[in-house]
Design a protein around this nucleic acid. Structure first.
Lengths: 339, 339
DNA sequence: GTGAAAGCGCTAACAG
DNA sequence: CTGTTAGCGCTTTCAC
């Protein structure tokens, strides 16, 4: 393995000069630099980032704390899309990514700070964490630069990227209202999830602004699961048959709602309109295709990385970025039929 | 930041002893060790993996060379499932993962070997690479331990994990034959893909073993794309209307075939049976649900990491692992109707 | 413009 | 069982 020492020897200069030449310092004779670069190439030199990191206390590395990279969640590609976005940006800005695992009990023994310090990451992006996760508290106490996905915390070292979930939900519900619906139920995720809280807010806001009363018992939790959502929708519909539309806080739950309707012989969208959230791949493939709120997930990842690196390099003023959502109208929602 | 030096000072021993104690060497007095461990905890010590890696020339890190983590591929969750498997295993065996990017032109400037050496990864897992990718050649020339996903190369330092694609395809085609089909076409991916070559082999094998002649012009390439597959199926069916079943080398292409049938008013499975490959999430959601060959993708990732780590730790005899596939019978294939 | 020397935090002979 | 010492490959004062 070639080191700068080797280069120094061959080029007949000192290691100091080699270091300076290779790192583009100005105070090196152009001749000398050329020579050094040449030799480096010739010897097929690659710098040792460990050694560099050791002395510089910077590694040009971003840690990724992603919950849900396990067997159960392998089919959820939200996380993957975020990852792709992060990856793309990191690569453009020449950072490497290191994946921490937060799932296995083994790693759980290590604290967040330990994880980061051991690997000397410059900063961290956290995705898929819940509001009540113990890591979250640590994040805010530690002084390691960090960007959260979909959790609105902003401090000197912590920032976040999210979409406007209130507005997104509002758009969906308003769409239903415009179709003539007044009896609109909501299947939410779970209360600890920030996005759930926001989407609920959007739902209530839309109703109120249109003079529709919010009925608490028409708001049920589907825990972001298809099966669970199906169950709650079944019981919801049996107890309140006058509901004509359901807004679901995720497409997966909308799928569950769809199944519930199928089972009950309720025709969607003729008898009941359904709107989802996320615009997952499946949304356009199911029958009927799902009306849903689309967020550019890749972009979320990209912006998260971009924000973090800006923070690391002292280029960020505000530590948050909010992305837009877009209502995608498909076939699961329709104008209400007057009976 | 606490270092072993600090611990040594506080505990009143030398750094050597601290190092030995913390790394679980046997030749340390139990008393001393207890003391040291205590102090370490008290000072909230985390080892600096950079420093350790520098001297040990090992980093307990696996590099991930994943093509297709970009905007276009964000929706493909094969890669993600592999990733999840790798992640799970790595975490169990206490390795960290570092994500290299092979997409951006910037990184492309660096050779594979450079990428690995700079970061001092112990080994690499490569996924999503094509047979004609220049990196592949490098991989085989370099002496960095490496495990390939779905590419059968086995050397002293290179291994691979794959499923038995010949057998998988054979299962699917045999299933169609058992349903009474004799006129079975195949929509393949593209010729440079190893899996395509294998699946073709399985297709031909199944036919031959049942005394059915292989018709070359019934084998078309759909380039693993839904739209393209739809096109080729349309022209295939118009030129050979006696085809009663189609085996597609991927579910995505099977979806395309399904759309082609829909467009032509061909009823699946009544008029035509379709079998896919992969068992992607969509497969069970489309109408009719797709009969397909399922591979445990998570497991592929898991085994890839496991194999690599075995290789790194000198525990691997053979450098390949072949996983099983499973035929999943759904509604897109049915017994042939005698007209 | 260049070099000598120190040191980042850790491990590993070697000696005791 | 424990400490002394050297050194991994690199950057960075500080002199010259």
């Amino acid at each position: 393995m070639t080191t700068i020492k080797d280069i120094a020897r061959v080029a007949g200069v000192s290691v100091t000069t080699v270091s300076r030449a290779l790192n583009g310092y100005s105070d090196v004779n152009e001749e000398t630099r050329k020579k050094i670069v040449e030799v480096a190439k010739q010897l097929n030199y690659s710098p040792n980032t460990l050694a560099r990191g050791l002395v510089m206390k910077k590694s040009k590395t971003i840690g990724l704390l992603v919950s849900g990279m396990n067997r159960e969640n392998a089919k959820d590609n939200f996380t993957f899309q975020v990852l792709c976005g992060i990856n793309e940006c990191a690569s453009v800005r020449e950072y490497d990514l290191i994946l921490f695992n937060t799932d296995s009990s083994r790693q759980r023994e290590k604290t967040y700070t330990q994880l980061c310090r051991e690997r000397k990451v410059d900063g961290v992006i956290i995705q898929g964490i819940k509001l009540d996760d113990p890591y979250l508290k640590e994040v805010m106490e530690s002084n390691i630069p960090c960007v959260l996905v979909d959790i609105p915390v902003e401090t000197k070292t912590v920032g976040y990227v999210s979409t406007d979930n209130v507005l997104g939900a509002k758009k969906a519900v308003e769409h239903l209202i415009e179709l003539g619906h007044r009896n609109i139920a909501m299947v939410n995720g779970y209360k600890q999830a920030f996005v759930s809280q926001q989407r609920l807010k959007g739902y209530e806001k839309a109703l109120k602004e249109h003079g529709i009363k919010v009925k608490k018992n028409w708001i049920v939790d589907g825990e972001f699961e298809e099966e669970k959502a199906k169950e709650v929708v079944l019981s919801l519909l049996s107890s309140a048959p006058d509901i004509t539309a359901i807004f679901c806080a995720s497409d997966l739950m909308a799928l569950g709602a769809l199944k519930a309707c199928q089972q009950q012989g309720i025709s969607v969208p003729h008898d009941l309109s359904i709107a989802g959230y996320d615009d997952i791949l499946l949304a356009s493939y199911v029958t009927p295709p799902l009306t849903t709120v689309s967020q550019n997930i890749f972009e979320i990842g990209y912006e998260a990385a971009d924000l973090l690196i800006d923070m690391l390099e002292g280029k960020a003023q505000k530590h948050h970025r909010i992305l837009e959502t877009k209502l995608v109208q498909r076939k699961s929602s329709a104008r209400i039929v007057n009976i």
